[in-house]
């Protein structure tokens, strides 16, 4: 018996072809994403290296409340100086731009989605498998339609990062809100609070640290996308790694790779410190 191969690839292609006719819609998204990217990059380009370093140190000093902050500040200072010394400064700010803009978009979309999941069983049942799909589908696969819809450059890179990095924020928001003890919800109800009051005065404040942990993961996942995003023209440290791979230049590859690690550690510690600060 001969069963023909299922033309799944053809279906998806024709689906994507059909979608590309909505140029206006995709241009709108492109422009919106581009505006966010440009604004962040503009700020970074405006700041001289020394001022940027001071601002990062000041932010770390302010958010880090525990005793180990001086060690971390020295690490930050040395790390950023190393990146500057290696000539990766502009690449680093581009990487930061990619990470921050995709995380920002992921949070703006992700938190409401998470809230919706926590409030509605139906939404949860529908969104959960989509999140699994977004996270497990190999990230390279997004790149192809991303280029088809958004061309080459930062924007498709941001979009692919958003898709890959958003699930933790959605999941953790859902988790944080669902974990608010039932008797507190009952107490809020028994005193006659509205759904909105319950959300803003009780559920979100109590879910804050869980949501922050999700945001932290989102940023780390976005950072892990920088090399992949560089393949479709998103500039930054990822581009340097990608080029080094192409030239079989292990030294440059590692140098750029270490710069990514430094950025990752700084972002991770600062967002975690924000989280700790959230407790009274």
């Amino acid at each position: 018996m001969n069963i023909g191969q299922l033309p799944l690839a053809d279906w998806i292609n024709s689906g994507i072809d059909w979608l590309t006719q909505f140029t206006g819609f995709f241009n709108g998204i492109t422009n919106f994403f581009q505006a966010i990217v440009n604004a962040i990059q503009w700020v970074f380009d405006l700041l001289p290296v020394w001022l940027f370093i001071i601002l990062v140190l000041a932010l770390s000093y302010w958010v880090k409340r525990d005793g180990k902050k001086w060690g971390f500040l020295i690490f930050e200072l040395l790390g950023m100086l190393l990146i500057w010394n290696l000539g990766y400064w502009r690449d680093m700010t581009q990487t930061l731009t990619l990470v921050l803009s995709s995380s920002l978009i992921a949070i703006i979309i992700g938190i409401p989605l998470g809230i919706w999941m926590a409030k509605s069983k139906t939404a949860e049942v529908i969104i959960k498998p989509i999140l699994d799909f977004m996270q497990t589908l190999p990230a390279f696969v997004y790149l192809i339609p991303a280029v088809a819809f958004f061309g080459i450059g930062m924007v498709p890179g941001v979009l692919a990062s958003v898709i890959f990095a958003m699930p933790p924020t959605v999941r953790m928001t859902n988790l944080g809100i669902s974990q608010v003890p039932g008797d507190l919800i009952e107490a809020a109800d028994s005193f006659g609070s509205t759904s909105w009051q319950k959300l803003t005065q009780l559920q979100l404040p109590l879910a804050k640290s869980t949501i922050m942990a999700g945001i932290n993961q989102t940023m780390m996942l976005a950072l892990s996308m920088v090399v992949i995003a560089s393949m479709i023209g998103a500039l930054g440290l990822g581009t340097q790694v990608y080029f080094a791979v192409g030239r079989n230049d292990a030294g440059s590859g590692f140098a750029a790779g270490i710069a990514v690690v430094i950025v990752a550690i700084i972002l991770d510690r600062i967002t975690q410190a924000f989280n700790k600060q959230a407790h009274h």
Partner: peptide
Amino acid sequence: KLSMVFQNFALFPH
């Protein structure tokens, strides 16, 4: 008209 007191206090921790 109605106020409730709960077994496990149900105070808002934040």
